[in-house]
Design a binder for these strands. Structure first.
Lengths: 226, 226
DNA sequence: TAGATTGTTAATCGATTAACAATC
DNA sequence: TAGATTGTTAATCGATTAACAATC
């Protein structure tokens, strides 16, 4: 009886701990997760079943303690001497990222950048599924782009409201980005992955993630200068 | 006499200090510089002559102390009560980034992504000047892309060796990225801005800056999950 | 068992924030 | 002068690294 009670309590404690951990995975770890995933999937495809944080760290030129800490954040426990079972580890990381259930998204702007992203292919691996593409060019509307139909950008708001789609990839020219983003926001979008070289100003309940090429180039320039 | 000696010493000390600062500008500051630049240029175009770190910080939703520290790293001194003179401040930041003299670069891979980047326009603002584009597609070779001629990718190594061009923007498909990067490296390229979703492995004297969309999307996913 | 690898607790490091005297 | 803003020195915070007992 006592044993059973202790067990229940233990399980609750453990669940609590896992929850806390999910909430508090440090951002740098989150950013490293995709590179772990890539590597782990490669091992998996080679038939490897177990991997140690030490090995993974070496392959990615990271410190082994860092990798161990990062993996611990997923809540999966490793086995001393063996490391981590690869398949469950992949699942645990994907779950931590929210990549276990594919996120449906729309892509707005079927120009060169939008087309390039559609062709990237890797997106399905990230649990990102583009279910519709929107553009304003009458020549493009109705065409297919990597298996997805291009729809009239005027119908975007309707589409979002109807499908409750949570995410938009924004690849329109900078000059239109703010206006279109506001329409997306009004229609109820939850997150915007913004590729336009503009800082969007929207209500705080829309999450905006910007791909800032200028920052990236600044880093390259300053490293090159040394 | 004494005064003059002191002056010389002072100047040396100051120069020394500036040098130290250049070497040691923290990376996060470097990454914030482009957003400062954008905003400062906007003020400048509006005819504003002086700006305080406080105002700049408010406009960018940053802490004012952070902005003050970042600006201090450029070596430019502000004036209590007035702030910083805009034009010299822009110059100081550009200099810190190495954006004062335009960096010549080539772009390798004239697909959708490469074309999109050529059309971005903002690049000249970053002191990046694409002077040649290379591709393997015979249909593209000889064509113009945003004012730059597309050359045969086979001629890349020659071109680099001849022009001593320091930087390459790599926008080829993932499958070719490593091979092409190795050729660039052998030809003497100093830095590669890598847009292929692949971690390049090159000798350490080539500086590689990767635009990692997976990391960016991971951040968005995890923020959206909360 | 011995040794490698884990998870955890403590130490270090670097960036951000706070406090405040100097100054225009 | 008074008040805003600077530059600098100290405190806080969070991430990385180090140390080490637990364990397969």
């Amino acid at each position: 009886m006592n044993g059973r009670l202790d067990n229940t309590e233990n399980r609750h404690l453990k669940e609590r701990k896992v929850l806390d951990r999910i909430k508090s995975i440090p951002l740098p770890a989150i950013r490293r997760y995709p590179s772990y995933l890539r590597r782990l999937k490669k091992y998996e495809s080679e038939g490897v079943l177990w991997i140690s944080a030490t090995t993974l760290a070496e392959d990615l030129s990271l410190s082994s303690i860092l990798v161990r800490k990062d993996l611990a954040c997923t809540g999966l426990e490793g086995r001393p001497k063996y490391g981590f079972p690869i398949e469950p580890l992949i699942c645990a990381i994907e779950k931590s990222l929210g990549w276990d259930n594919a996120t449906d998204a729309i892509l707005v702007g079927a120009g060169n950048l939008g087309t390039a992203l559609m062709g990237y292919g890797g997106f399905t691996q990230y649990g990102l599924k583009i279910i519709a593409v929107f553009d304003s060019d009458p020549l493009k509307i109705g065409e297919m782009i990597h298996g997805v139909k291009i729809l009239d950008i005027e119908k975007t708001a309707d589409f979002i409201a109807r499908t409750k789609i949570p995410m938009a990839v924004l690849t329109v020219p900078a000059a239109y980005a703010q206006l279109i983003a506001m329409k997306l926001s009004d229609a109820g979008i939850k997150g915007i992955w913004n590729f336009a070289p503009i800082k969007l100003k929207l209500s705080n309940d829309v999450i905006i993630q910007r791909v800032d090429l200028a920052s990236s180039f600044a880093e390259l320039s300053s490293r090159l200068k040394k």
